[in-house]
Structure formats: C-alpha cells, structure tokens
Design a binder for these strands. Structure first.
Length: 580
RNA sequence: GACCCCAUAGCUCAGCUGGAUAGAGCGUCGGCCUCCGGAGCCGAAGGUCGCAGGUUCGAAUCCUGCUGGGGUCGCCA
C-alpha cells in the first residue's frame, strides 16, 4: 500500500469531519522521529485562510485523527503542526501483508497509460561512447519502473541511421575499399567515416561524390540501400553486444530512416496549419510570430524566440526537426501512445520545447516530456574524454568496471568458483556504473570517477548488492526458505526494528514517486536508507539466535528488506547477486 | 544580444507542491572483530545554503536584482 497517500486521504477526511471543509491535508513524513511519523500541516494554511487560530484547528483535526486505528497518537505542536505517530501493531500487520504480495506492496496505478520511452539513440557506424551512457541507463530504468507501476511501456531506440554521414560513408567505402564492406566491423566503419570526413574537407570532388551518394541513397537506389543496410547490420551486431552486457532491451528500433517516407507529409501538415513560412530559402517556424499566424502566442519562453525552428533546408533536405515531428505523428497515430518520454541530454531542452509546441499546435494531444540529464564530467569537471581527446567508448568503460570489480572480488574471501566470480564481477561492475549514474539527480552534471565508483562503500551499487546478499546469507545459514517465508504479523520492539520497519513502509510511495517524476535517484535513496537501516538492525538485533515470535518478526524484516533491495535493483536495471 | 541551468560541509552530492534544530557519502578524529558476511556498525568535528532585497506565521526552496560558473540559440543531431 502507498502509505503516505493513504494517510493523506485519512487526514483529509479528518479535516472534513472536524471542520466541515475540504482542504488539503499537506501530509509529510517528519524529518525528525521525535515529531512522530507524519505531520499534517494543513491547519496552518487553513487558519490563515479562515482567520482562525491554527492551533485550535489543529486540535480539532488531531482529535479526529486519533480515532483511526492506525494512529497511536496525534499531537499538536508548534504553530499548528499535527504530529502523527503510527501504531506499531498496525505497521507490523501492514508489513506482514507484503510478504505475501508478489508486487512487494506496490499497488498498481489506477489509470494506466501507453507510454513511449525514447532512449539510448546511438548512431550507425559509430561506437557507443559515454555520451550514450546516461540516456541508456536512465531510459532503461524508467521503462522498468513505469512498467512496474502498471503502465504499458514501449521502449524505443531512435537510432541515428539516416542523414549526411551516409553519403560520406558510401563514398568513402568506394574510394578506400572498392565498395566492399565485407569483413568490416564497427571500428572499421568509424575509420572509413573519419577518413572520408577529413578528405571531404579539402577535396571538393570527393565532397561532391559524397553528396551524390547521399542523393542516390535517399532517392531509393537499390545498390546504395544495400550498402546502407550493411552498415546498419554491422553496427547492430556491435550494439547488441553492448546492450547484452548492460542488460538493456527495447521493444522498438524505429530509427530515423523509418520516418523518412513520412517527411513530405510533415511539411504538408505544417504548411496547412499555417505555422511555417519560407525565409532565406528554408522552411521555418517562427515562434515570435505565432500570435499573428495562430492567434495565440507561443508557449513560455518561445514567444520571445526569434531564431526559427527549421523543418526544411534551402537545398530541400530535411532535418532532425522534421524527423522528430514525424516521430510524434507515428507515436500518436500508430502506436496510440498517450505519452512520450524523451531521455535526451538537457542541452537539447530548447529543441524539445519547440518540437512539443509544434506538436501541440498540430493537434497531437499527447503528453510529451523531455527527461533531460546533465553532462558526464571527468575528475576535473571537464566533459570526459580519453587522453587524446576522443570520446571514451562504452565498451572500454564497461571493461574497466568489470576488471576493477574482479580485482576487488579477488581480495575478498568469499567462496566463489572462478566461473562464479567472473559472472558476479560483471554484475557488480556494470551495476556500479549504473548505480553511480542513477543515484544522482539526473539534471546535474555527473562527475565520473572510477576510483570512487569502484570504492564499493557507502551509497554505491555494490553495497546494495552486498546488503541483499547478506539477507540471503542469513536465510541460508538458518536453513530457512526465504522466498516462502510468511508470518501473520510482525512485532516491533527494538528501536532498530522500528526504524527499519518505517523505512520498509515507504517502498510503494517511493517507487511511484520515482516512476512518475522520472527520478530514479528517489529509489536509490530509499535503497541506501534501507541497507543502512538493515545493517544497523542486524548489528543490534540477533536474528537466528533469537526465539519464537521475535525470531519470526526479525526474519520477516530481513525477508522484506531482501525483497525491496532486489526489486529495487532490478527496477534500476541492476542484477542482484546471491553471494559476492 | 536573448534565453536556460547551476552555486548547500574540505571534496562529490541530496533536500519532494515553502514547514520545526539544513542531510548523506568520501575524507578527518575516536570507539567496535569470543557476535547471523568488517564491502560493516557506533560516535565526533565540520555549513553566514553565492550576495542583497522582497513575499509570510514560516524561505536552501517562491519573486526581483547582482556576482560567479556552465550551456543553448537558421540550414549538425
């Protein structure tokens, strides 16, 4: 059950009973446990509104609240806070229910939406690099969280498989390899692109060849298309390897090329809607003129935006703006999505504001969200690069993470076979990279530091995996079936038990909040609090050596902790391990 | 030039639609291995929340201005 949401309702009806009005309860978890578990702050706002003493109102609300069986105490404090303390037996019973719940207490959302999550989006003929890291990790975590809370989610890899680079690639392939792509791998493709790109800068005839090749490809020439297909296949093979290592999957791979046939229609639609006009040969949408053409000003800051949103270049070619409009059309009309989430670098915020404004104007009534994220920086706060200034490939980054995890595991004296150790090292290494990214507010730039990442202490992926493994270890040691463990209720006696229980109680609220706000760090925060509270608990309270109801209750707390940790890790795209 | 984002402990970062004494990790200092996994636990020190105003019962949070840093803005994506 979503406890916070539930008590917010409880408090709201208490206000209605006590004061005869419908007013927001403003219920929040208290920051300090000496103020109880939750505080109801609505009385203060109400007091001002009705010009009455907020403490008097709070007293009436408290008198009503205390009648609820889950509420052990409701006290008025300060200027008009109502502090709620939950009943221990109620908490214990509520948690015990979750032991038998395959969803770990996370009730599904009432109104499921059809959501497209657009993430990762690598380019053809290029290796994935750190620039793709956050989109891939975040996007995948969002997909699993949104799906778990009950939405119908379509993960879509909007691959960069169309555009000017293919003219260069095909021309380059002809020039340097006689048009033969056999035996090429991704690095070979990158090499050709680099050479071709360099050559085109000072060889005008070659640049013309490249343009001609692009024109041929885009006009549907069969031979060009076959070459293009080979580039796509070579890249795809490489991408599949990386995604397999990262445990990332997609429902759709609708790249830019997929939308190419729709582009003329985009132009027609935009023109028909009377929001575009030609300027200097290009077809442009000017937002600062919107009031004149549409009757209403452009939303937000766009009203002042003098630079155009260009949908067709002066040479007649289309741009990513055009493709992106087509993408919205397809998601709306064919995929029937009511919502689309773009997991893309925050620097593209303006582009998405423009795109969304256009989409709304064209009548695509779906919720469009840009879930932006900051740049990956090195230890010195500069955008991360290799020594020679190139982008670090994702493959090399994962190699390093796994290697460091393996070294670390070798130091520990956990009985693992060689084979197991390698497998665990992969889960721990990749998990560390993912967790380090997800634990941070996605909008801040993210300082990537291998030494910290692999430290494996504190708020890190490995620590979470470690805590989960310890839970399993307790059940193994006691010869108890963890998955099948059930108790009718949980008795909370020791202070460490009470603290842990309250953290466990928050899970459903946290998962929903993280999913709805697209902020996985809310979930990592919870997992970290949970593993800390768990460590404190097992340090203070003997589990296996205790007896009777106490032992059962403690085992139940362990089982719940294990489930939330594993569930949380899986939702984040991190693989839990049995031993490490 | 316009617009956007950021500024919180030595470092890296949380701080939800305004709520009580601003929180973590790392680092520092001091404790805890006859005890279910020490990748751990307990405790301590450490902050004029960039600056100045304003809004109000109450501001790190909202508004305005300023300073400092980053970013974006016609034919790349």
């Amino acid at each position: 059950m979503r406890i916070e949401r539930y008590f917010d309702e409880v408090a709201k009806s208490a206000i209605r009973e006590a004061l005869g009005v419908d007013a927001p309860a403003i219920l929040k978890p208290t920051q300090d446990s000496k103020h109880g578990d939750y505080q109801v702050n609505g009385a203060m706002a109400l007091g001002k509104q009705r010009k009455e003493n907020p403490r008097d109102l709070a007293t009436k609300i408290a008198a009503e609240l205390v009648k609820h069986p889950a509420v052990a105490a409701a006290d008025v404090a300060g200027p008009g806070f109502v502090n709620l303390r939950l009943d221990e037996a109620w908490i214990g019973a509520e948690l015990a229910k979750n032991l038998d719940d395959p969803r770990d207490g996370v009730t599904p959302i009432e109104k499921a939406e059809r959501i497209v999550v657009d993430y990762s989006s690598p380019n053809i003929a290029k290796q994935m690099h750190v620039g793709h890291l956050r989109s891939t990790i975040l996007g995948h975590a969002l997909v699993s969280m949104l799906r778990f809370v009950g939405h119908h989610v379509i993960g879509d890899n909007h691959v960069g498989d169309w555009g000017t680079q293919f003219g260069l690639l095909i021309a380059g392939l002809r020039k340097f390899r006689g048009g033969d792509a056999s035996g090429l791998d991704i690095e070979g493709l990158e090499g050709i692109y680099r050479q071709a790109s360099a050559l085109s800068k000072d060889d005008e005839s070659f640049a013309n060849e490249a343009r001609a090749e692009l024109a041929k490809l885009q006009s549907g020439d069969a031979q060009s298309h076959a070459l293009w297909q080979q580039f796509v296949d070579i890249t795809r093979a490489e991408l599949d390897k990386i995604y397999a290592r990262m445990g990332v999957t997609f429902e759709e791979w609708l790249g830019e090329s997929f939308y190419d046939p729709m582009l003329p229609r985009v132009i027609e639609t935009v023109t028909a809607a009377n929001i575009a006009r030609e300027d200097q040969g290009a077809l442009c949408i000017f937002f600062h003129e919107w009031a004149e053409t549409t009757g209403t000003p452009a939303p937000g800051r766009l009203a002042k935006q003098k630079e155009p949103f260009i949908v067709r270049k002066k040479d007649g070619a289309f741009l990513y703006s055009t493709t992106d409009i087509a993408t919205v059309m397809h998601r709306h009309e064919v995929l029937h999505a009511s919502r689309a989430i773009y997991v893309v670098d925050a620097r593209q915020a303006l582009h998405f504001e423009q795109l969304f404004a256009v989409a709304a104007r064209l009548g695509f009534t779906m919720r469009l969200e840009h879930v932006g994220f900051g740049t990956v920086l090195d230890e010195n706060g500069k955008p991360i690069k290799t020594r020679d200034g190139k982008a670090i490939t994702l493959a090399s980054l994962l190699d390093e993470a796994e290697k460091r995890a393996l070294d670390k595991l070798a130091e520990m004296d956990v009985e693992l076979s060689e084979e197991e150790r390698v497998r665990v090292a992969k889960a721990v290494g990749v998990g560390a990279v993912k967790y380090a990214d997800l634990r941070q507010n996605r909008l801040s730039d993210y300082q990537f530091d291998f030494d910290k990442l692999i430290e494996f202490r504190g708020n890190s992926g490995p620590y979470m995996q470690y805590a989960a493994a310890r839970v399993g270890s307790i059940f193994r040691k006691g010869g108890i079936d963890e998955a099948g463990f059930r108790v009718p209720s949980i008795a909370l006696e020791a202070p460490e038990e009470k603290v842990l229980a309250r953290t466990l109680l928050r899970f459903a609220d946290v998962v929903h909040a993280a999913a709805e706000s697209c902020q996985p760090h809310l979930l990592t925060d919870h997992l970290y609090a949970l593993s800390r509270d768990f460590s404190t608990f097992i340090e203070a309270c003997q589990v296996l050596k205790s007896e009777g109801a106490t032992r059962d209750s403690r085992l139940a707390l362990c089982a719940l902790t294990g489930r939330q940790l594993r569930r949380g890790l899986v939702l984040l795209g991190i693989e839990p391990v049995e031993r490490m």
